Amino acid sequence: MVPDTAPDAATHQQSNAAAPADVAHPKAIKSYVLRAGRVTTGQAKALETLGPRFVLDYAAQPLDAAAAFGRTAPLILEIGFGMGDATAHIAQVRPEDNFLCCEVHEPGVGALLKRVGEGHIENIRILQHDAVEVVDNMLPEGTLDGVHIFFPDPWHKKRHNKRRLIQAPLVAKLVSRLKPGGYIHCATDWEPYAEQILEVLSADPHLANTAEGYAPQPAYRPLTKFENRGLRLGHGVWDLVFQRR
Rank of each mutant, 00 (worst) to 15 (best):
residue 83 M to Q: 12
residue 155 W to Y: 14
residue 39 V to C: 11
residue 142 G to V: 00
residue 36 A to M: 11
residue 226 F to Q: 02
residue 114 K to C: 07
residue 144 L to D: 08
residue 69 F to A: 01
residue 161 N to F: 09
residue 133 E to R: 11
residue 109 V to F: 05
residue 11 T to W: 07
residue 192 P to H: 10
residue 71 R to Q: 12
residue 97 D to C: 14
residue 181 G to A: 01
residue 217 Q to A: 10
residue 11 T to H: 12
residue 89 H to F: 14
residue 123 N to I: 11
residue 28 A to V: 08
residue 169 P to L: 15
residue 61 Q to P: 03
residue 149 I to E: 04
residue 208 A to N: 08
residue 58 Y to K: 01
residue 91 A to K: 06
residue 214 Y to H: 09
residue 219 A to P: 05
residue 20 P to W: 09
residue 209 N to P: 01
residue 231 L to F: 15
residue 45 K to P: 00
residue 160 H to I: 05
residue 163 R to H: 15
residue 228 N to D: 12
residue 96 E to C: 06
residue 124 I to T: 00
residue 221 R to C: 04
residue 144 L to Y: 03
residue 228 N to W: 07
residue 108 G to L: 12
residue 20 P to M: 13
residue 133 E to T: 10
residue 7 P to L: 00
residue 40 T to N: 03
residue 143 T to M: 15
residue 232 R to S: 14
residue 76 I to N: 01
residue 9 A to R: 13
residue 65 A to K: 01
residue 31 S to W: 00
residue 27 K to I: 14
residue 35 R to A: 09
residue 139 L to W: 02
residue 172 A to G: 09
residue 221 R to S: 11
residue 51 G to T: 04
residue 54 F to T: 05
residue 21 A to D: 10
residue 200 V to W: 13
residue 175 V to L: 10
residue 42 G to W: 03
residue 72 T to W: 00
residue 192 P to G: 06
residue 11 T to A: 15
residue 21 A to H: 02
residue 113 L to S: 09
residue 181 G to D: 07
residue 153 D to P: 03
residue 21 A to L: 09
residue 154 P to T: 00
residue 52 P to L: 06
residue 183 Y to W: 15
residue 122 E to W: 00
residue 100 L to S: 03
residue 29 I to L: 06
residue 240 L to S: 02
residue 154 P to Q: 09
residue 54 F to P: 00
residue 245 R to T: 13
residue 40 T to L: 05
residue 225 K to Q: 11
residue 154 P to F: 04
residue 107 P to I: 09
residue 211 A to Y: 05
residue 23 V to T: 11
residue 43 Q to Y: 14
residue 119 G to K: 07
residue 90 I to P: 04
residue 197 I to F: 12
residue 102 C to D: 04
residue 27 K to Q: 11
residue 199 E to L: 14
residue 235 H to S: 12
residue 166 I to M: 15
residue 85 D to P: 04
residue 176 S to H: 11
residue 167 Q to C: 01
residue 76 I to C: 05
residue 90 I to D: 07
residue 117 G to K: 02
residue 225 K to R: 15
residue 104 V to F: 08
residue 139 L to S: 07
residue 13 Q to I: 00
residue 72 T to I: 11
residue 237 V to L: 03
residue 177 R to D: 05
residue 180 P to M: 08
residue 156 H to W: 15
residue 129 H to C: 00
residue 114 K to P: 03
residue 144 L to P: 05
residue 197 I to C: 12
residue 215 A to F: 00
residue 195 E to S: 13
residue 14 Q to W: 12
residue 245 R to L: 15
residue 98 N to K: 03
residue 133 E to W: 01
residue 129 H to Q: 08
residue 171 V to S: 02
residue 90 I to Y: 06
residue 91 A to C: 05
residue 133 E to S: 08
residue 86 A to I: 05
residue 125 R to F: 12
residue 178 L to Q: 04
residue 178 L to S: 10
residue 4 D to P: 03
residue 166 I to E: 08
residue 131 A to R: 08
residue 81 F to S: 11
residue 157 K to E: 07
